[in-house]
């Protein structure tokens, strides 16, 4: 039986990937960011997940305005790192887990979540930066990855509640998969940040801290936060935090926080990171 053992939440700031790729991880500006993931690298080396179900958003990379799926599951054998305008990130190809992805698709759609099935897609920093933060710079990624893209570019994104409930449907789907697999679910993006207009640079440490606290204490409260609260309190791009709720919904009711990190800034953004373990 496949089982979800843990969830990871992390920001996916593109500048973090650029800094790592350019060999600047030790610079005074970046060193505190990467230090927050030292524990995580040791932790994941011990955990050895077989598959990471990685909830992220595409940033006008694979999906332009031609097609905008609200929820898209990557079912391909592999996914190339995208050229987002700066050239491709020098990171390994992302190997998929098509058997599990197709299984989850079939289960989750029958539970009422009408996913878009994607068999060809390049993956942008939203997906590759979290892999870099958790695994560093290996020759190949040490696990398979199911990319799960959530629209947060075109308003309205799915609600936090919808993402949370989707997580629950993913939990059920994984539990019904026969192969013995150690699966992690990651929620990425956030935390508070605004990249546009005269209000760019908004950071709300208080909101972010309460959000991190309530991932263990009161996820129901988080699931009820409406879009407008994210926009007003955390900046227009803070709405990415709904993706963390898909991760949280995929875990058990009671989880254990084993690591937390919060740092301002990385470029325009508050970097948040948390590791939650399911009961053994």
């Amino acid at each position: 039986m496949a089982r979800i053992t843990a969830g990871v939440g992390t920001s996916h700031v593109p500048a973090i990937g650029a800094a790592l790729d350019a060999g600047k991880a030790g610079d005074p500006y970046w060193q505190p960011v990467f230090k927050g993931y030292d524990f995580s690298k040791r932790w994941i080396a011990a955990q050895k997940p077989d598959v990471v179900f990685l909830v992220y958003n595409d940033h006008a990379t694979a999906f332009s305005l031609e097609m905008i799926p609200t929820f898209a599951i990557g079912c391909a054998e592999s996914f190339q790192p995208a050229d987002e305008g700066w050239g491709r990130r020098p990171v390994p190809v992302v190997n998929g887990a098509p058997d599990l992805a197709w299984h989850i698709m079939q289960s989750v759609i029958q539970d009422g979540f009408d996913l878009t099935i994607v068999n060809r897609m390049d993956v942008d920093h939203g997906l590759t930066v979290p892999l870099s933060l958790m695994f560093g710079q290996p020759q190949s990624w040490p696990c398979r990855v199911i990319p799960f893209a959530v629209n947060v570019v075109q308003y309205p994104p799915p609600s936090g509640r919808r993402c949370y409930e989707l997580g629950r449907a993913i939990r059920k789907a994984v539990s019904l998969f026969d192969e013995d697999l150690n699966v992690q679910v990651w929620g990425t993006g956030g935390m508070s940040h605004q990249l546009q207009g005269p209000r760019a640079g908004l950071i709300n440490r208080e909101f972010d801290t309460a959000f991190l606290d309530d991932l263990t204490r009161d996820p129901e409260r988080l699931a009820n936060i409406p879009h407008i609260d994210y926009v007003r309190e955390t900046g227009s791009e803070g709405i990415e935090m709904v993706m963390w709720l898909a991760m949280r919904g995929a875990l058990e009711e009671k989880v254990r926080e084993v690591h937390r990190f919060y740092h301002v800034p990385a470029s325009n953004t508050a970097v948040g990171h948390i590791i939650l373990e399911n009961p053994q």
Partner: peptide
Amino acid sequence: YRNMMLGGGRSPEGNR
């Protein structure tokens, strides 16, 4: 701008 971010970013106070 970079210094504002290093100082913790733009506060939501007065900007809601």
